[in-house]
Design a protein around this nucleic acid. Structure first.
Lengths: 352, 352
DNA sequence: CGTTACATTTTGATCGTTTTAATTCACACG
DNA sequence: CGTGTGAATTAAAACGATCAAAATGTAACG
């Protein structure tokens, strides 16, 4: 019933359909599609009209198969729900998109086994590269095994466990955790605090270790005592942080300020403080890390370290694209600066 | 130099390599891969070992090409930076992942032209379906033209412009905007408020219209006057909302409460109120919409409508998967319920 | 006119998998 | 011994694009 000029709506239009539609070969149509200068002006016009008329859509998968190329990049995140990573993802997608790549998303919910599964599944789609913010406890060996040696990897935000080698064969984009935490600690010290805790995060995670190191550095430089019971661990989320709040006050004299692992933890801690009748920003000073959107709006607004996650996302994408251009270049390790943002949560100690 | 049992690291391992490695045909290996019962126990074992030995990874693109199937779904969001959509994305990815699909991400930053570009680019990868939360001002005709008739579309959160037909040929998952705004308004009325504004959002967007309708419904049912100057528009973000705050107080008597378009707007409004010396939650009541994570933590905590975005994401994915199973079923329109969450930002009017 | 040069187009193999329709083999049966 | 049966395997043609090499046509040159 349908004329052959309007092919049956149940089949995809291919190069062959277009070719048949204007009496040229598939090759010619292919050349037109890719704007080759080889093809005659007049035929090009005919073909282009036919493409439009039939509503052709390019099949990139087929092209990629033949050319042994890829036009996608996998983005695997440990916690998409966290606004920090959501912004990061937006930045990655933005930069990849304008370079003609498409983003394959995978979120692991901080689970190592899901990470393995997600990586496996994404790899089957043959991404040109992978941007990975690993789940806590993710191991270098595991990851390397499921990714293989062919697909370039860019590690964001955290190191992999068992990856002591700074020259491991993949690129990294890290935040300047140590310097950030040092700045926050120095800031508290300059306000007059002497008893300062390091609060939250898992001591096993690389970012937590680095931040803690920055804290230690500042404390020692100022000649202040570092009391072991003032390092309190928690899961890196609000809920657990609020629950661990009490541990700060087990021993007297208690600290008068806390450098927190990140903003989520800091917000949770402030909640916990309120519940004990301690007013953060007046009776007790708090700093965070990340500068998520909530930090500016909490009560009191949170002093924290800004890391501009969207810009980091773009940067991560750029680094990966660079790697695709030069597969043999030596591995790069970039440390993005962070900036101290002063807000009301960091007050002087009550006595001072 | 390299033995042929360890093929050159520079070429991908294919079925043919495995087949050669254990003297069977490609077809047999393919059968093994997909767990066909046809193949002999003993050969299966041999093949499986060889697969593992050579580190084979399945090429899903090639398989999809041959089978004329797809194993991806495109997810296009107007604002990934908004935690509401980030959570939604996490839910979508979760559900798609466990159904064996991979998520192709695209974010449009609320720009219609970027939306067109992103849709075009994603379509070339032949997704099985599309989940779209359209940019403001996105038009039904445009979208239909770039998507074509072949790929099922699930619309989330907003209607398309010029799409008055509730039986348009695509599925929809919407929030119960009208009922939610009605509940919030009724709540304020029950607290004793009589002069209630509707604050924020663009009047042209469908979700804003629906929420406003719910507000009107409650006001009229209570016999309260609806003053036109109490409907104040703003971009749906904090910054612009804070800037528009003053408009509430141009005419006297001013409202004593505001039903806000969403949480972002409500948080911005509260900021603006503070700047004028008006304390939200004491001098002025505010409600939001979405229940993003910040809502519980703001000062004061925000009364709002919870829509559990992660669950919505899973639901959207399920609806699309269902559509893939039954392409011919009539279009569905699902309205997800929302729940009023009472917090301190909704106080009685100061006089009462 | 034969040859060369050049511009344009086409043929046919190929990418890595799936699938249909053989094919092979062993064995039992009449 | 011929044949039918069933299990296991395979050859070869797809899928939709690309690309190297070959073919075609046209104009120019000696």
């Amino acid at each position: 019933m349908s004329t052959d000029s309007t092919p049956h709506a149940n089949r995809k239009i291919t190069l062959a359909d277009i070719a048949a539609g204007c009496n040229v070969s598939r090759a010619t149509v292919s050349l037109v599609l890719r704007g080759s200068p080889l093809v005659n002006k007049h035929t090009r016009a005919r073909v282009e009209e036919e493409l439009h008329r039939q509503g052709y859509v390019y099949n990139r998968a087929a092209a990629n198969l033949r050319r042994r190329t890829s036009s996608s990049v996998a983005l695997v995140l440990n916690d998409l729900g966290n606004p920090f990573f959501a912004e990061f993802a937006a930045g990655v997608d933005e930069a990849l998109g304008s370079a003609g790549y498409v983003t394959l998303l995978g979120s692991t919910g901080e689970s190592v086994s899901r990470e393995q599964a997600v990586l496996g599944s994404l790899l089957e789609h043959g991404p040109a590269g992978i941007i990975l913010s690993p789940a806590e406890g993710s191991e270098a060996g595991q990851v390397r095994r499921s990714i293989g040696l062919r697909t370039p990897l860019l590690l964001f935000n955290r190191e992999l466990e068992g990856d002591i080698d700074p020259d491991a064969p993949w690129d990294r984009l890290m935040l300047d955790n140590q310097r950030g935490a040092r700045l926050a600690t120095e800031h508290l010290i300059s306000l007059g605090h002497r008893r300062i805790a390091f609060f939250g995060g898992h001591a096993s995670s690389s970012s937590c270790q680095q931040r803690h190191a920055g804290y230690l550095e500042a404390m020692q430089a100022a000649g202040l005592a570092v009391v072991p019971s003032w390092r309190i661990e928690s899961a890196p989320n609000r809920v657990d942080a609020a629950a661990q709040c009490g541990a700060l006050f087990f021993e007297q004299p208690a600290p008068t300020a806390a450098v927190c692992y990140n903003d989520a933890v800091a917000l949770g801690l402030m909640l916990g403080l309120y519940q004990r009748g301690i007013r953060p920003g007046r009776d007790f000073a708090v700093t965070g890390f990340d500068d998520i959107a909530e930090a500016a709006l909490s009560a009191p607004p949170l002093t924290t370290l800004a890391s501009t996650p969207r810009a980091r996302g773009r940067q991560a994408a750029e680094m990966l694209l660079q790697r695709l251009r030069e597969p043999q270049a030596p591995a790069r390790r970039t440390v993005a600066p962070v900036q101290l943002v002063l807000r009301a949560s960091s007050c002087p100690p009550p006595a001072a």
